[in-house]
Computed example of a mutant assay.
Amino acid sequence: MASPGPSSAPAIRPTRRLAPAAPNAAGVLPPDLLFDVLLRLPAKELCRLRAVCRSWRSLTSDPLFAGAHAARHPGPLLLAKFRDDEARVHVVDLSGSVVKRIAGPDGHELLCTRLHLACVASKGNSCHVLDPATGAAYALPESPAPEHVNHENSRDPYTFFASGRVASTGECKVLRVFNRTEFDAFDQQQLFEVFTINGGVSNAQWRARQSHYLFVEANNAAVVGGVVYFLTDCAYDLMLFFGVNTGIHPDCIASFDLGTEEWRRDIQGPISSGLSMDGANATEEYRSIWHKLTLSELKGSLVLAYHRRHQSLDLWLLTDFERGLWVKEYSIQTESAIPADEYFVKPLLVSDDGRLVIFLASTGLLLIYDPRTNSFSEVEMRRLDAVGLYTGNLLEFTRW
């Protein structure tokens, strides 16, 4: 992971003519020199220095400066929600340092996104979009799509949200799932709706979309390339416990395309295909897989993470959706690095030097695995409630 600093990228000088300093202005730096000086400072300090004067605010907000600063200070930034701070989202770096704090509504969870925006939502049907660069917040409407107004699920909402960007149009969309009101109420459908964040007045309401024929695990979803991927609901695991073989595999994956706003065909994961369900022990092993799988995104591909208790963490990358081809990219010996009862192991990113950043949802820890030394290290920060990737620029104002 490249270390940010003055030597991390060549100096970039402005190609736009800057206003000259006023004559006889004692102590005022020439514009070109001020550009170079401010360029060396981290984003955290520049966000504070914007309050010095209008000219500094104008300079540091200029897209030219913002682009030059991003080139000079590479390295991923994370969006984090800490367990001891329910009201704010934090932008942090991989050293654990807080770069910026953004106010948000209490009691909302941070969605695991890879966007220039942050999304926070509650199970009670409240979703807000936050702009880390400006601190602006936008509350999505809570009223359902017209087709779902009188539906039981929307009258007593229990909701999940996912958000992603459509590459072909640049639109950011949110998918809302009205879940079943009762865990075992199989006569109730999950309801799905889409909202376009930057779609203008004409799209300022939720649009009802077709429900999936299987129940999906809305709380275990990943967005890759504008497609939302879901594992099947663990309710099928419960049915298997009572001896009802539905034929639904724990690594069966559904996918919803945010661009077309339609479901794609389901694909089978690489885990359960080699297992037999004959015998009590085999059935128990098959059932246990449901609670060891997590979906994520790495290097632009869908990842299925399989955490074997006290053994290993296997990461499978989907290489060909149409043919359903998977490749095991990592098989990491976890030993005592990851607790045996950790049920939600989510890989977040691969750094430029090959290190893997992993989030442990149960314990709230962020780990870095180095394949060169086969070792884990813990990022020193407060316990996390949720974490995602920030792909925007804190110095450049976002226009929704």
Rank of each mutant, 00 (worst) to 15 (best):
W316I: 10
A137N: 04
L231E: 09
E262N: 13
C53T: 03
F65K: 00
K81R: 07
R399G: 06
L293R: 11
G124Y: 14
E329N: 14
E193S: 07
I338W: 07
P141W: 05
R48N: 04
P347D: 01
P14W: 04
R323W: 06
N220Y: 04
R16L: 10
R155F: 11
S273M: 07
G96I: 03
S163N: 02
A19K: 13
S58I: 07
A222H: 07
P146A: 08
V149Q: 15
L41G: 01
H69G: 02
T294G: 06
I289K: 03
G27M: 09
K292C: 14
T232L: 08
K100N: 13
L39N: 04
Y306W: 12
D84G: 04
D251N: 01
R88F: 00
V350S: 03
G5H: 07
P371K: 07
E152L: 14
Y343I: 01
D266K: 08
R180F: 00
F82N: 02
E380F: 03
A305T: 07
S202K: 09
T159Y: 08
R83A: 13
V194P: 00
R264I: 01
S143Q: 14
E193M: 00
Q190E: 15
T159P: 02
L389A: 11
S312I: 04
G269M: 09
E171C: 02
F192H: 11
A103D: 14
F192V: 01
G392E: 02
A19T: 15
D62A: 09
A254I: 05
R101K: 15
S296W: 02
P105I: 04
I271M: 01
S143K: 13
V98I: 15
V37H: 06
R165K: 12
S288D: 15
G269A: 02
V89E: 04
I197L: 15
G124F: 12
S58V: 12
T159I: 10
D106T: 06
A70P: 00
L395H: 03
T373W: 02
G259M: 03
F397S: 13
A340L: 08
S61K: 10
L38G: 00
S331M: 10
R372K: 11
S126N: 12
Y390C: 09
L395F: 07
Y236C: 06
L325C: 08
D385K: 14
F344P: 00
F359A: 00
L367Y: 06
V92I: 11
F195K: 00
G135W: 03
P105Y: 00
Y390E: 08
S273G: 10
K173C: 08
S272W: 06
V227K: 11
R88K: 13
L356S: 06
Y229M: 02
A145C: 11
D84F: 12
V37L: 13
W263I: 06
P74F: 01
W206S: 00
H90A: 09
N153C: 15
S296L: 02
F183A: 14
T60K: 01
V303K: 01
D341H: 09
G225I: 06
Y158Q: 10
Y306H: 14
D320L: 04
L110C: 05
L34Q: 11
L395V: 02
G5E: 05
R50T: 02
I102K: 13
N374G: 00
Q268V: 02
L214R: 12
L41C: 10
T260C: 07
R372C: 05
G107M: 05
A361P: 05
F35L: 01
S61A: 14
H128E: 10
H249M: 09
N179A: 10
Y213Q: 15
F397C: 14
